[in-house]
Amino acid sequence: MTTYKEIKNKIAQLEKEAEALRKAELLAVITEIKAKMAEYGISSKDLGVIKNKTRKQPGTPSPARYRNKEGQTWSGRGRKPKWVIEALAAGKTLEDMGYFIG
């Protein structure tokens, strides 16, 4: 009669074998896909793997979203400039004053 411990050991061994087979099959599939991509000139972008998002470079200022009558601007990020604080304290909203650019 087979014991519980023997069955657990068999299971562990089979799991190791299964993982080794999975890795080998995965490597073969990836190699085949890369070959087909090279053969047909397909890129990751064509497959939709890489999105066409452009990222802002670090240190690039954000575009102005708010502007006052004097032409001062604010991106809406970071601390509010003095002119925004004063306008809000006066009971106005950014949209009421026409600061919102877009």
Rank of each mutant, 00 (worst) to 15 (best):
L47V: 10
M97T: 06
S62T: 01
G76F: 05
K16V: 14
K80L: 10
A38F: 08
K53F: 13
Q72G: 02
V29W: 04
A28G: 09
G76Y: 07
V29N: 10
E95T: 15
S62M: 07
R65D: 08
K36A: 00
Q13D: 14
K36F: 04
R77P: 05
R65S: 02
P61L: 00
K5Q: 13
G91F: 00
K8C: 15
G48K: 01
K51D: 14
I7G: 06
A64L: 01
Q72R: 09
V29C: 09
I7R: 14
A89M: 12
K92V: 05
G59W: 02
L14C: 11
N52I: 05
R67E: 10
T60M: 06
A64W: 02
R77F: 03
R77Y: 08
I11A: 11
K36L: 13
E19L: 12
I11M: 08
F100H: 15
K34V: 07
K23H: 06
R67G: 02
E25W: 06
L88I: 05
R65T: 06
E32K: 15
I85V: 12
K51V: 09
K5G: 08
I33R: 05
A12N: 13
A90F: 02
T93C: 13
K5R: 13
K34R: 11
W74Q: 01
R55L: 15
